[in-house]
Nucleic acid binder design. Structure first.
Lengths: 157, 157
DNA sequence: TCTGAAATTCATTCCTT
DNA sequence: AAGGAATGAATTTCAGA
């Protein structure tokens, strides 16, 4: 269950610390939140079991794996069930599409794409995006600047 | 330096595994990529030093921390330096804004916002978004469906 | 629920190949 | 670069408050 809401300030501090450094040792974490290691570990395990902590990930430099060029793509899809389902299924098979959202209003769909460079993007665009069926519009937006980065969710307190 | 490109297939496998589970023990990781623990650890440390691995994070369930309602907001800002800089500085002080991008073309700016519910969003919108100076348009888009989720970057191989 | 100690597992170093 | 053994840390469990 995700919301038994027995989450107190210490739990929130644990979440904040682990969002910042997911490889903190239990001991170091315990010290930062004012516990000793056994209760601290019990809380962490509980948060994991409850699904509050969904997992841990290494954060990789996109440049280093040939994905330093990011594009946001607005797409309009024909508003019929067949078209939408086929389109969304097709997205699953394009690894360069790292996020995709269906929106209310316009655009109907927003993709976040990560490729090596503009050449790779051109190839992706001509070979895979424009060939998707049921699409009525594709609009590619290059990011000029990251104004604010996602370093995890703000955790109250 | 990020690209000395002495990265081989084993390194890419390490990155893939650590993206999937950032708390893998070196031993378990070593087994998965076909090494013993000492060379495996050397590689991980090297990747960290080179900045290929930028860090480790716990992934938190947004619902559990009162941020289950996500909105994408397109904003147009007056195209003058003062306005843009003031606007972008102001965004830094709104914790609900978890990502912000300045784009080429239109919209000039895209925000990703995470709040508890639509009521909280209404409050944010009226109190903090519409009051930002230099803004000519605000367009809020609610996510109907997450078609594809970011579980880290695809790592070749 | 916490503490503190005991048992086990892991990280890390060093030396050899 | 990789493997293996040694050691020092950290995790994890458990008894008691």
């Amino acid at each position: 269950m995700v919301n038994n809401c027995a989450m107190d300030q210490i739990d929130r501090n644990i979440l904040r610390e682990l969002q910042n450094d997911g490889r903190l040792t239990i001991q170091e974490l315990a010290q930062r939140v004012g516990l000793t290691s056994s209760p601290c570990m019990r809380r962490v395990r509980q948060l994991e079991q409850d699904g509050v902590i969904q997992g841990y990930r290494a954060v990789i430099d996109p440049e280093a794996v040939g994905r330093g060029f990011e594009v946001l793509v607005s797409i309009e899809v024909k508003r019929d069930r067949e078209a939408v389902e086929a389109f969304e299924a097709a997205l699953q098979d394009i690894p360069d599409v790292i996020e995709a959202y269906r929106l209310f209003g316009s655009p109907g769909c927003l993709l976040r794409i990560a490729v090596a460079d503009i050449t790779a993007y051109e190839r992706l665009w001509i070979e895979r995006l424009t060939t998707l069926s049921g699409i009525t519009e594709v609009n590619s937006q290059i990011i000029m600047k990251r104004i604010k980065e996602s370093r995890g969710l703000p955790v109250g307190g």
